[in-house]
């Protein structure tokens, strides 16, 4: 299998006044293409910091990071921006859609920053991404006309549209009720089945049972890294949920 991510002894120290906060204290792992990795840990254990590093938003204080075989540590701001644009899809807890903007325009956004695509191609790619998350009939809906689950689907479509090497999600189901969470989880599992590489930060230990691998952080260190031999099917779990009564 092809290696997508390789971390070598990553440390991230923040200097707050006189104190040094060590958010990551030597994290090393590799992730191969097609893995669905959940990252768990208590609040403040360094999950978001790790994800920001993986997403090339943050540079580690020390350590090496290879994304798709390229060393990220020596890259400047602009190079990292381009790398994010081509290789990474972000999904946030609070969706981060553009206000008063249609689903299709939101999904097109990453492509706007890639000169390779013209307007027609952007549109086609955005439409197919939206269709793949089940929003083919909501193309022109604005972000303020959608439910949380729909907004998160748009955000997932946006993360997919540039066909990234890895999809990074930080608490992607954190703002959703359990039913909608499972719906989103079904979507993630389908993406996993399609061969996408996904890294999913979560507080919820249940979600780990639907991924292929689980990494646990504590105080900036990895305390557990287990492969899941028995991946549960979110579709079944969704069906087992009590029917909505409204």
């Amino acid at each position: 299998m092809k290696e997508v991510i390789r971390l070598e002894n990553i440390r991230r120290h923040f200097i707050v006044g006189e104190e040094v906060v060590k958010a990551l204290r030597g994290v090393s792992f590799t992730i191969e293409e097609g893995e669905f990795v959940t990252i768990m840990g208590t609040s403040g254990s360094g999950k978001s910091t790790l994800l920001n590093t993986l997403g090339c938003l943050d540079t580690p204080t020390s350590g090496e990071y290879y994304l798709d075989g390229v060393s990220v540590r020596t890259m400047d701001r602009n190079q990292r921006a381009t790398l994010r644009n081509r290789k990474i899809g972000f999904i946030f807890q609070n969706y981060n859609l553009l206000a008063k903007t249609t689903a299709i325009e939101n999904v097109e956004l990453p492509l706007l920053y890639n000169p390779r695509y013209n307007a027609r191609q952007r549109r086609e790619m955005a439409v197919s991404a939206l269709q793949s998350v089940g929003l083919g009939d909501r193309l022109q809906h604005r972000s303020n006309q959608m439910s949380g689950g729909q907004m998160q689907r748009v955000a997932i479509a946006r993360a997919l549209v540039n066909n990234p090497a890895v999809i990074l999600a930080d608490e992607a189901t954190g703002n959703l009720d359990s039913r909608t969470s499972f719906e989103i989880l079904v979507l993630f599992q389908r993406l996993h089945a399609e061969g996408r590489t996904i890294i999913f930060v979560t507080h919820n230990p249940d979600i780990a049972r639907y991924s292929s691998r689980n990494i646990t952080l504590r105080d900036g260190r990895i305390t557990a890294d287990t492969r899941n031999g028995q991946i549960l099917d979110a579709q079944e779990a969704l069906a087992a949920l009590p029917a909505q009564n409204d």
Binding site: A81, T82, R84, N85, R86, F90, N96, Y113, N162
Partner: peptide, 10 residues
């Protein structure tokens, strides 16, 4: 922040 995270340069 969002634009930057999805690849907008300064």
């Amino acid at each position: 922040g969002l634009r930057m995270s999805i690849g907008a340069k300064g």
